[in-house]
Simulated assay, not measured.
Amino acid sequence: MNPHLILSVVSKLLIPVIVVFGFYVQFHGDFGPGGGFQAGVILAVAVILYALIFGIDEAQRAVPPVAIRYGAALGVLLYAGVGVAAMLMDGAGEPLNFLDYDALHPDQGHHTGQHYGIMLVEIGVLLTVSSVMLSVFYAFAGRIPDIADEDW
């Protein structure tokens, strides 16, 4: 019998709830407290809990380190790309403003460009934060200890 049966069963029930809550914080960030940073940490916590219960090797099979590196790079590129796109789409004769979201959508009356821009930026922050948190965790969890378990 598995000595960690209760932990594995409870974590299998808890991890999907953590992920759903992370996405709730991400997509509710436009209307209240929260957003990409908090959601990124919450999603990383779900993978870290999985690694603590089932082992670092299982976690790295579920979320490979190469996907984390691509996620961090893609998040930064998305964040910067929204800013550059806003600069390039800005009206002629006006100063170019980095992350001026109104330039992203022509309907200036309802500021729909603001909604699109902040959502894309927050998704970029989510990708970057969760990827960096997981890469730090993988780096520390995957290190070889200085003292063997028998020597304690």
Score class of each variant (00 low, 15 high):
residue 126 L to C: 06
residue 56 I to M: 11
residue 41 V to Q: 13
residue 84 V to H: 09
residue 4 H to M: 13
residue 90 D to C: 04
residue 11 S to M: 04
residue 86 A to P: 14
residue 55 G to R: 07
residue 112 T to N: 12
residue 149 D to C: 07
residue 33 P to Y: 08
residue 139 A to G: 07
residue 88 L to N: 01
residue 104 L to A: 08
residue 7 L to E: 12
residue 93 G to Q: 02
residue 120 L to A: 14
residue 8 S to M: 15
residue 115 H to Y: 12
residue 72 A to N: 01
residue 50 Y to S: 07
residue 14 L to R: 06
residue 103 A to Q: 12
residue 147 I to M: 15
residue 68 I to K: 06
residue 19 V to E: 02
residue 49 L to Y: 01
residue 113 G to N: 03
residue 71 G to F: 10
residue 45 V to A: 12
residue 34 G to V: 03
residue 152 W to A: 14
residue 39 A to T: 00
residue 94 E to M: 02
residue 121 V to R: 06
residue 54 F to T: 00
residue 147 I to R: 15
residue 24 Y to D: 02
residue 109 G to F: 03
residue 113 G to H: 04
residue 55 G to I: 07
residue 95 P to D: 10
residue 118 I to K: 13
residue 12 K to D: 13
residue 55 G to K: 08
residue 68 I to S: 05
residue 51 A to L: 01
residue 121 V to N: 07
residue 104 L to Y: 12
residue 85 A to F: 06
residue 1 M to T: 07
residue 34 G to C: 07
residue 60 Q to Y: 00
residue 19 V to P: 05
residue 130 S to T: 06
residue 42 I to E: 06
residue 145 P to E: 03
residue 45 V to R: 01
residue 69 R to A: 11
residue 133 M to G: 00
residue 58 E to Y: 11
residue 28 H to G: 11
residue 94 E to A: 02
residue 38 Q to W: 06
residue 56 I to E: 12
residue 78 L to G: 03
residue 91 G to R: 12
residue 143 R to Y: 13
residue 18 I to K: 08
residue 119 M to S: 04
residue 93 G to V: 01
residue 76 V to A: 15
residue 141 A to K: 08
residue 105 H to I: 10
residue 75 G to L: 13
residue 13 L to A: 14
residue 96 L to A: 12
residue 64 P to D: 08
residue 111 H to A: 10
residue 84 V to C: 05
residue 30 D to R: 05
residue 82 V to A: 04
residue 58 E to D: 13
residue 43 L to V: 11
residue 70 Y to E: 05
residue 95 P to E: 11
residue 45 V to W: 04
residue 8 S to C: 10
residue 37 F to W: 04
residue 4 H to V: 09
residue 122 E to W: 11
residue 150 E to G: 01
residue 88 L to D: 00
residue 135 S to I: 10
